[in-house]
Simulated scan of single mutants.
Amino acid sequence: MTETTGSTATPESGNPEGADGAAETTAEGDKTSGKKKSGKRAKKGLFARIGLFYRQIIAELRKVVWPSRNELTNYTAVVVTFVVVVMAFVAGLDYGFSKLSLWVFG
């Protein structure tokens, strides 16, 4: 399997290398036994797994398309405007229901 830089499908991550994700089988069709793995497939130590985890995080963050300052300002304005509109709507409903309950129950 050919991997790209920053791919998370590594033997250390536990993801299968096969495209279909099926377990490896022998010529007789039996699944491979639970023999101790060696080489690249051997279980890594705690610090090696933590290091791999952080390397994968950094690789994924490099793939993110970050917004420009102008886009971020526009997105923030849209969100704040939407929140203010929803707050006004809920406040109006609250005021209306409170007046209705005072009218009904006196």
Rank of each mutant, 00 (worst) to 15 (best):
V84A: 11
R69D: 00
R62H: 09
L52T: 04
S13Q: 06
F53L: 12
F105G: 11
L93N: 00
G92H: 05
R49P: 01
K31P: 01
E60H: 08
D94S: 05
A42D: 02
W103R: 14
F105I: 14
G39I: 01
F47R: 10
L52F: 13
A91L: 07
F89A: 11
R55K: 15
E60M: 10
F47C: 09
W103L: 14
A59R: 01
E28F: 06
S68V: 03
A59K: 00
L61E: 15
V65T: 11
E3Y: 08
S101F: 07
G34P: 02
Y54A: 13
T4I: 07
V104F: 12
N15I: 15
S101M: 10
V90W: 01
A77V: 05
A77D: 08
T25F: 02
A59Q: 03
V86S: 01
G14A: 02
K43S: 12
W66H: 07
Y75Q: 13
T73N: 15
P67Y: 02
I58P: 00
E60Q: 11
T32A: 06
F82T: 13
A23R: 14
T10R: 03
F97N: 04
D20T: 06
E28V: 01
V83N: 13
V64C: 15
G18M: 12
R62G: 10
I50G: 03
P16M: 07
F105W: 08
E24C: 06
A88K: 04
G14I: 00
A91D: 02
G39E: 00
V64Y: 04
D20A: 15
R69V: 04
E71M: 06
G39H: 00
K35F: 05
G18V: 06
N15R: 14
V78K: 15
L100F: 09
V104M: 13
T4P: 02
E24P: 00
V84L: 14
L93Q: 08
V65L: 09
K43Q: 06
V90Y: 06
L61P: 00
V83L: 09
E60R: 08
E28K: 12
V79C: 12
R55P: 00
T73W: 09
N70M: 01
M1A: 09
V80N: 13
K36R: 11
V65F: 01
G51C: 06
A77Q: 10
T25Q: 03
T76N: 11
K35H: 04
F89W: 02
L46D: 05
F47E: 14
G6A: 08
T10V: 08
V83C: 10
K40Y: 04
G6T: 07
S33R: 07
E24T: 12
S68F: 02
T25D: 03
K35N: 04
G106Q: 14
A91F: 11
K43A: 05
F89V: 07
S38M: 04
A22M: 11
S13H: 03
I57C: 11
G96F: 05
G96W: 03
W66V: 10
K35C: 04
G18Y: 10
A91E: 01
A42C: 00
T81M: 11
G39D: 01
T26V: 08
V64A: 13
E12F: 01
R69H: 02
